[in-house]
Design a binder for these strands. Sequence first.
DNA 1: GCATGTTAAGTGACAATGTCACTGAACCCC
DNA 2: GGGGTTCAGTGACATTGTCACTTAACATGC
Lengths: 220, 220
Amino acid sequence: MIADWTERFQGTAALPRSVRDRLLKEARIVEMPKGAQVFGPANVPDSLFFLYDGRIRVSQSSDTGRDIVLYRVDAGESCVLTTACMLAEEAYNAEGMAETDITAIVLPKLAFDRLVAEEEEFRKFVFAAYSRRLIDLLRVVDDVAFGHMDVRLAERLLTLAGEYKEISTTHQQLASELGTAREVVSRILQDFQKREMIAQSRGHILLLDKQALRERAASN
Amino acid sequence: MIADWTERFQGTAALPRSVRDRLLKEARIVEMPKGAQVFGPANVPDSLFFLYDGRIRVSQSSDTGRDIVLYRVDAGESCVLTTACMLAEEAYNAEGMAETDITAIVLPKLAFDRLVAEEEEFRKFVFAAYSRRLIDLLRVVDDVAFGHMDVRLAERLLTLAGEYKEISTTHQQLASELGTAREVVSRILQDFQKREMIAQSRGHILLLDKQALRERAASN
DNA sequence: GCATGTTAAGTGACAATGTCACTGAACCCC
DNA sequence: GGGGTTCAGTGACATTGTCACTTAACATGC
């Protein structure tokens, strides 16, 4: 159980005790299992989403069946794309998917609006969240429009591995990260393998030479 | 001279007279000639930008010299990317360029913040502006990652022409719209020409068969 | 007029990426 | 251990990106 989730968010931790107590009453705590769709074209929420724990992957699908990951929402962040979707009339096809089991705080639209009006700290938090996502998307556009696939893949491998050396993922999943086709990922990974930067087995990739990958990720 | 610019914007026209009068005092009116850089990496504004008249093209540049247009800001809209840029620490490389002579209203950050706090109408306007841009960027990502160049080019030709039949632009400029290379645009336009969808002369494109272009733009 | 420089557009070769249809390999489960 | 399923490898080809170059259109000064 969660004692006081308002501790967890930069935008709420700085608020006066009275406001936070009100929030605790008004918000709902939601848990979802890994793999659940948090939001999507058929499932547009009407509230603000704070991610208390876990990670959400926000991706976009083409009608030809290819996917691309736009960004990830980590614990402590809010997911503003949902609020954007509320306002948008147009059809769009972004979806949020729970990448781990998640715990989220759902704040009704009305409470959200009042909070934005009354609390400067919270306002800053919300605008920062929007800005953060705009910047994230600028980065995606830059990568997709101008980046080379081997560079992007090297970069993504390092990100996904974090401090570890092994990644459990399929070529198809990597392709869906980058918005490309599986065959392209296979080709590039084979090249990486030939250069002994990685080793592969079904569903697993071992990063043998992170330094070389970092160099590749920084090149071009 | 502008009599009362608050008439012009959805977010300000609905405000009480007293608030609008205060705005008229606090905001500054700025004019810029066609071709001027409204904002950019070296020129980050610290205020909210309302575009009163004209049009701004927001584009992103790669370090290899290619460009892509992200969206356009029309009269009556605000440009929130500037506010996003304020908050972002990271280097980004989007720039806003006056596509016509423009007249803009510059609202100091402080006045902006107070307005967001006090006026629900204005708040709605600001959030709608953010959402609009997020959606625009989603569209760009979708196009670049999954769209075919001939389709995108046909679409862009129709948009740029509007109700007219002729466009005055170079292949290079079209390439910079779409984030591709001039040679690619030349190739595709030659194909369109062969099919008698367009006619070309140096610096000009005549749309002969808009219907065919629309079909191409809708295909794939 | 004409020479000259500049910008726009065309061209061919090649590399990188996307698409398709298929094969082979690893894993799962009974 | 057989049979189905998912994952990865392969070759052919289409599209797009890159490079180095040529040709054409326009602008300017004489």
